[in-house]
């Protein structure tokens, strides 16, 4: 048995950490969302004015839906890229497994910003993509719509978040006992039927975890729209950023943050319930 003093001492760091970096900031954010700005000063008058503004001005809902559309696109694309990769690596890569795994991980070591700027140079008017298209005579002049569009944001974020989707997926595929695959073949199922009836259902928890990563991380992203998105792909986090920055309306920004936080928490709660339901072992 551990002594009471020992238990107190070891539980102190996590308590301090959670209190200082989680509870306190959230409490401040929550409090701000009910305050107001008057004459360029934050006044501590409690009220629901900020939330009313959010629901009355259609701009916010529009941006939020756009953000969710982009997040859904990133999720879908990174699943489409990540699942086949994870499946191949887990079941058919053999000795190349470790090398491929490292290759998937390596981009995570490169700064987000560097990768963002890389896409800027690829998609820009004098970028690599346009240069290539002109070189093989598909286009005569630089195409401008690659850059500064929701498409560019989805492309960049898919590139950045695919490893996050891949990792939990790969882990869940690796956890499927191989004799289940053999049992399926033994009972007369080919690779297709085995995938649909055994591998896919058993990888659902990993798939869900990966999808949640991509969706939630995209939901809070504000750099991609700044780097490659342009005005047409402003996302909800950009609005928060400007409210906390140049617009100096912390209370309104905080109220948006609270909404996004609630949205994210309910999403995480939902996916966790589903993951529990789908975790069989």
């Amino acid at each position: 048995m551990y002594s009471r003093a020992y238990k107190t001492i070891v539980s102190l760091p996590p308590l301090v950490w959670i209190g200082m970096f989680l509870l306190l900031p959230y409490a401040l954010m929550f409090a701000h969302s009910f305050w107001l700005v008057r004459n360029g000063m934050i006044v501590h008058h409690w009220g629901l004015r900020n939330y009313a503004t959010l629901f009355q001005n259609p701009l916010y809902a529009e941006v939020l839906f756009r953000t969710m559309r982009i997040a859904a696109g990133v999720t879908l694309l990174s699943l489409l890229l990540g699942y086949p990769l994870a499946y191949y690596m887990s079941f058919h890569a053999g000795a190349r497994k470790d090398l491929l795994y490292q290759l998937v991980i390596v981009p995570l070591w490169v700064s987000y910003l560097v990768r963002g700027y890389a896409w800027k140079t690829i998609l820009g008017s004098d970028g690599v993509l346009n240069g290539f298209l002109q070189y093989i005579h598909i286009t005569k002049e630089p195409v401008s719509f690659f850059l500064y569009s929701p498409f560019a944001v989805i492309l960049m974020l898919t590139h950045i978040y695919t490893p996050f989707v891949f990792l939990p997926l790969y882990a869940s595929l690796e956890h499927i006992p191989r004799n289940l695959v053999e049992a399926s073949h033994d009972l007369g199922a080919g690779w297709r039927a085995t995938f649909l009836r055994v591998i896919l259902p058993l990888s659902l928890p990993g798939l869900l975890a990966g999808a949640t990563f991509a969706f939630v991380l995209t939901l809070g992203d504000f750099l991609a729209p700044l780097l490659v998105g342009g005005p047409s792909s402003i996302m909800i986090a950009n609005i928060v950023q400007s409210l906390f920055g140049t617009a100096y309306d912390w209370p309104l920004g905080a109220s948006i943050s609270v909404c996004i936080l609630l949205l994210t928490i309910s999403l995480l709660f939902l996916t966790e319930q589903l993951e529990k339901k789908w975790a069989y072992q």
Binding site: P177, N179, L180, A183, S184, V198, L202, W278, Y280
Partner: peptide, 8 residues
């Protein structure tokens, strides 16, 4: 050997 029943 370990039955390999489908858990789902």
């Amino acid at each position: 050997q370990n039955y390999a029943l489908f858990p789902h």
